[in-house]
Every structure is written in C-alpha cells, then in structure tokens.
C-alpha cells in the first residue's frame, strides 16, 4: 500500500526547503452497502510540496476534495476514508515524519509542530466548559510559560483578533459564530506552530475582522518562517494571503503556481473561470455560473475531469488524462490546451 522508496538525498542548496511532500496521493471514502462497494475518490492522485516560510493556498469549488486532502495530510483520517496509494511526508528541520508509514510518531509530533483548524471548527469547542479551559488544554503545556505569563499572552493574542479577554470566561454558546471562529484561530496560532493547516477559517467574519485575522496568520507565519496551508473557496482571500496557490477540481489538481501569476495569467480554463467569476460590489449583472453540475467523485468523468464543463474541450480531453506539467508561468498545469483560454 505504501510507497517505500526513499526520496534521493537533496543536495545542499539555497533552494526553498520542502517541509511537506505529498506523492501520488490517493485517498478514498470506501463504503460497502449490502455488498455494493461505493468509492468516493475525493483525493485522486495528488503531488505537491509545501515549503518552509510560505502560505500555500488550496482553492476549488464545493465538494472538490479540499477538506479531504488536508485531512489526509494532517493524518486526521478515519474510516471509511483510506489512503489507498501514495505518501505524505514532513521534514521539520531534519525530523522526518512519514504520516502513513508510522502513525504513532505523527500523533506525538502533531501538537508539537502542526495545528489544524478544521472547517466549521467553532462547533468543536466543548459546550459545557468555559473557553479558558480550551486554551489550558491545547496550548498551555506547549508554551513553557508560567500561568500568569500564559494568560497575558493569550489575552494579547485575542486582542489582536478583536476579542475581549472576557471571552475566556464565556461558554461557547454565549459567543457569536464569528467570535467562536476567532477563538479557534487563536487556539491554533497562539503557540506559533511550524505548520498551520486552516480550512475555511474566515467564513463567519465580517470583512474588517477578516483582514485582522489574515494579518495575524501572516504575521505568526512570517515570524518563525512557518508554513501555512490555507483552504478556502474565496479567491480574494487567496489573493490576500497566499504565496502559491493550487486549484483543485474533482479530486485532482488542475493548476498550481505563484498566486500573482495565477491571477494574472491563469493557464487552466477552470482557473480562468474562478478568477473571472469573482464578485464585485456594484456589479448587478447576472453572473454566469459554471455550466453543469460538479462531477460526482464516485463516478468521475473520463479523461480530463473538467471536460464536460470546459468551454475549449477537444476530443482528446475525454479520452486521456492530462498530467500536471510545468506551465508557462512558472507553475504546473494539467490541461492539453494550457494557456489558450483568455479571460473574458
């Protein structure tokens, strides 16, 4: 099941350091109903690396597999999800973790190096305990501060997110949706981990608070040169915070590259669509949604998975699977007609 070959030794260069390396990753939800096997191929052949000191974005439409992918890389999967192929490896400054090779070690390392803000995570706060207990449980022992210094650090961190220290005494139900969302962001960032995974962490925030939260994440990331994997469907948020951006479509990557280049010269027609459909205030024209429905991951389209909805598809697209290859803009793209779609 696991790919056991070791990567070749990396020569010492000044090139960016890869902290996370995902190789040919396939992770499916496998259910058996009355003897009928149903596979949802939510992650279906993904290669990518995340470097030290960068914010790596993952975008894509609803149910394209974003959450599934990052659950897999955080080692947070449970049945019916299974990694059926490929590997997920971290390298924290020489400390290697092969997530699906040695799961126990990952567990131990998890809270030390990595924190994961799950989608909708404001619902994971314990409803019968005050918020301060969550900080004591998750962060206190990792920070090596005495109780008073710890409390002071937490309070100033909350303040940066626009939250009053009194939220520590509150129960989750006494806070608004956006206040709870900020509490979980504070929990995940206060101990300044080397690797932060955030899944739609700003969906419940007004745009001013959203800017504060993005600013804080960027700052925590920059201070230690940490890595952040940031998942959202919101392309403006990607524009604001990510250094590199991957576009996911139906369980695979469609395109990846430096964020600015992707916005300026999208190479994949789906990327071009996402950027063209960005909403703007003041625009009342009926914007066209992408024709057709998101594909079923239990029975994805043949060839290029985007072909039934692609405005420039050719015959080859339904027969062959386009591979991720270097693109003209310094990234990678999986399209037989890369670069041919212009933005309307």
């Amino acid at each position: 099941m696991m790919n056991a070959t070791l990567a070749p030794e990396r020569p010492a260069t000044t090139a960016p350091v890869d902290v996370l390396t995902i190789k040919d990753l396939k992770a499916y939800y496998i259910n058996e109903h009355f003897g009928v096997r149903r596979e949802v191929r939510a992650v279906d052949g993904i290669d990518l690396t995340v470097r030290r000191n960068e914010v790596y974005g993952i975008a894509g439409e609803s149910s394209s597999g974003k959450t599934s992918l990052i659950k897999t890389l955080a080692g947070a999967i449970r049945p019916p999800m299974r990694v059926v192929e490929g590997s997920v490896k971290f390298d924290f400054g020489g400390k290697h973790i092969d997530v699906y090779g040695e799961p126990a070690k990952m567990q131990a390392a998890r809270w030390q190096h990595l924190s994961y803000i799950m989608q909708g995570s404001m619902s994971v706060l314990n409803p019968v305990r005050r918020i301060k207990h969550a900080f004591n449980n998750f962060a206190y022992r990792h920070m090596g501060l005495d109780a008073t210094a710890f409390r002071r650090r937490v309070e100033s961190h909350l303040d940066r997110l626009g939250l009053d220290a009194s939220v520590l005494e509150a129960f989750p139900h006494q806070l608004s949706g956006g206040m709870r969302q900020r509490v979980t962001i504070a929990l995940a960032t206060v101990c300044e981990p080397e690797f932060i995974i955030a899944d739609e962490p700003t969906t419940a925030l007004d745009v001013l608070v959203q800017q504060d939260v993005l600013g804080l994440i960027k700052e925590v990331q920059g201070r230690l040169g940490s890595s952040v994997v940031f998942v959202t469907h919101d392309m403006s948020v990607h524009a604001a915070i990510t250094d590199r951006l991957a576009i996911m479509y139906a369980g695979r990557l469609a395109e990846e590259g430096p964020t600015q280049a992707l916005f300026d010269r999208p190479q994949h027609p789906y990327t071009a669509h996402l950027i063209a459909s960005l909403p703007r205030i003041g625009d009342v024209s009926t914007r066209k949604s992408l024709a057709g429905k998101p594909p079923s991951l239990a029975n994805p389209p043949s060839g290029c998975r985007f072909h039934p909805r692609c405005p420039i598809a050719i015959e080859r697209c339904s027969k062959e699977v386009p591979q991720m290859l270097p693109s003209a803009t310094g990234g990678r793209v999986a399209c037989f007609r890369a670069g041919e779609v212009s933005m309307q």
Binding site: A239, I275, R280, I281
Partner: peptide
Amino acid sequence: VLPPDPKAAAAAI
C-alpha cells in the same frame, strides 16, 4: 472588501 488582485489585497492587509 478585499480587492480581487494579489498585490492590492496583500497591501490592504
């Protein structure tokens, strides 16, 4: 409201 452009959006933050 974040502008839909990386340079402008990062500058806003």
